[in-house]
Simulated scan of single mutants.
Amino acid sequence: MNFFPNAKINLGLNITEKRTDGFHNLESVFVPVLWNDELEIIESDQTSFVSSGIEIPGEPNENLCLKAFYLVQSEFKLPPVRIHLKKNIPIGAGLGGGSSDAAFVIKGINEMFELNMNVEQMQNFARKLGSDCAFFIKNEPVFAFGKGDEFAPINIDLSNKYLVLVYPNVHVSTAQAYSGVKPKKPEYSLKDIINMPIKDWRSFMKNDFEQSIFKAFPKLYRLKQDLYSLGALYASMSGSGSTIFGIFEGIPPRIKVKDAQIHICKL
């Protein structure tokens, strides 16, 4: 069977406190994005993982897709499968591509083998794989809190808006991103900001990673300003970077950025 794991963006990102388990509590709004990987899962004589497209670092047997399969197999009797992932979503770009791939394996296995898991069961598997992995089970806009794996419904309408994503081939490690952030309670509630007109988000919505990351990579700051100069209603870095996105009212003007991947889609 074939599946198409999608990316996500963060609207706002507040790092609110350091947890006793070493993780951080955060607040954000997660929104699914139509930038997709391609995932094929078929029964086989032995379980394996192969990939094509963008090169995935690390050993294949350590990939989250395999870990997701084995996690489900630990509780259900499943035959071996061959997983082929064509990687299109940039890696380490703040778009959640790896988490999405793993979540779609869980959903795919549930569908293929008629396991009849409900959303909560699948989310509980996904939470064991990564902080934002559980989001991709329901795959709809949510207010995210805790480690980024707890969700509350949110009313947001971005229909007919266009999204421009610019990945400038700059790698920002998660450790580097968190090292530059001091957790604090946000000045404004993200739940309130999200109900404002989009043009007002620029004045109130923040991504706490931007301040230190932009100092280390001025190119990212310039990209954000470029999107505003082209007419973006709102622009930001997604997650811990390095993708910069802009939300536009209509079809955006042609954008050229040297040595960058640019993806345009409708929200």
Rank of each mutant, 00 (worst) to 15 (best):
Lys87His: 07
Leu129Arg: 10
Asn110Met: 03
Val81Arg: 00
Leu78Glu: 01
His84Tyr: 05
Gly130Asp: 13
His84Gln: 00
Lys77Cys: 05
Met112Tyr: 01
Val105His: 00
Gly130Trp: 13
Glu111Phe: 02
Phe76Glu: 15
Gln123Glu: 15
Gln123Ile: 02
Lys87Arg: 05
Gly96Ser: 10
Leu85Pro: 01
Ile91Cys: 09
Pro80Asp: 08
Met122His: 02
Ser99Gly: 15
Gln121Asp: 14
Lys67Asp: 05
Gly96Asn: 12
Asn124Met: 11
Gly98Tyr: 07
Met122Thr: 05
Leu129Trp: 07
Asn118Glu: 10
Gly130Pro: 13
Ser74Cys: 03
Ser99Thr: 12
Gly130Ser: 12
Lys67Leu: 11
Met122Glu: 14
Val105Glu: 03
Leu85Arg: 01
Gly94Met: 11
Glu111Asn: 12
Lys107Asp: 00
Ser74Ala: 15
Phe104Trp: 14
Ser74Trp: 02
Phe113Tyr: 09
Leu78Trp: 06
His84Ala: 00
Met112Phe: 00
Ser100Thr: 06
Leu71His: 05
Leu71Cys: 08
Lys128Tyr: 11
Arg82Glu: 14
Gln123Asn: 03
Phe125Trp: 04
Ile83Gly: 03
Gly96Arg: 09
Ala93Thr: 08
Gly92Thr: 07
Tyr70Ile: 01
Ala68Phe: 03
Glu111Thr: 11
Leu78Pro: 04
Phe69Asn: 04
Leu95Met: 14
Ile106Gly: 08
Glu75Ser: 15
Ser99His: 08
Lys128Leu: 14
Gln121Ser: 14
Lys107Asn: 10
Val119Tyr: 10
Lys107Gln: 11
Ala68Arg: 01
Ile106Glu: 09
Ala103Asp: 08
Asn116Cys: 04
Gly96Val: 03
Phe113Leu: 14
Ala126Met: 04
Met122Ala: 11
Val105Asn: 06
Val105Phe: 03
Leu71Asp: 08
Asn116Gly: 02
Met112Asp: 03
Ala126Val: 01
Ala102Gly: 11
Lys77Ala: 13
Ala126Thr: 04
Ala93Val: 06
Ile106Trp: 03
Gly92Asn: 04
Asn124Thr: 14
Gln123Val: 01
Gly96Ile: 03
Gly94Leu: 12
Leu85His: 01
Asn110Cys: 09
